[in-house]
Amino acid sequence: MSLLSVENLEVSYGDFQAVRGASLELEAGQTIAIIGANGAGKSTLLNAIVGLNSQKRGTVRFDGQDITHLRTDRIARAGITMVPEGRRLFGTLTVEDNLMVGLAAERPGPWTIEAIYQLFPRLGELRSMVAGSLSGGQQQMVSIGRALMTNPRVLLCDEISLGLAPKVIGDIYRCFDAITASGVSVVLIEQNVVQACAASGYVYCMLEGRISLEGRPQDLTRAEITAAYFGTEVRT
């Protein structure tokens, strides 16, 4: 049985249906990626999993339990958290205070403040800086560190490469080896197809609120992905 399973999820904002029946599975220890263009419903799907969206139908199961309508803080305490799009740090708090907020989930585990500073040594140097004053890449490290501080079993990452320099993106993705090695299962949202395929063992492509393609990266052709991503016919 998979650790996290989403069955036929539908999410609406008022009259607009952003997710139209999406299903996906995440096995323990696995990293999966969801790719798709802007507005395909990727972020909405993740937000719905952690309960930040209330207008939804379908089922989200975590470790066999139905968590579809659980409150976000309960879901976090159960072991699913998210690195939100745009980082969303507590801008007036210091780096260390940002990380310490994660202790509220009361989930002991390998990820302590020292472990975060070991993963991102730069954050140790910046620990007493106000988070709002950091560069984009540093902020992304704080955002990932903050999520890890809850010692999640499932970590959802919403476009962590957005707006960052390629070198910084590389640095951040390299850290995911250590994160998955600690037993965390990861769901990545990416617009960057190459990055997503390189970092994950299974890829879902979303188009207009539906899963338009799924499979292991090595089994998918470039043409298939392009068609599923943009919704165009494959020309041969």
């Binding site: 952690v50 309960g51 930040l52 409150r71 976000t72 803080d73 976090a76 305490r77 958290t81 998210m82 939100p84 969303r88 507590f90 907020v101 994660g102 509220a104 989930a105 009361e106 989930r107 903050r146 999520a147 501080m149 809850t150």
Partner: peptide
């Protein structure tokens, strides 16, 4: 909103 992801009600 984000504090909820850290397990805060």
């Amino acid at each position: 909103q984000i504090v909820q992801l850290q397990g805060v009600n």
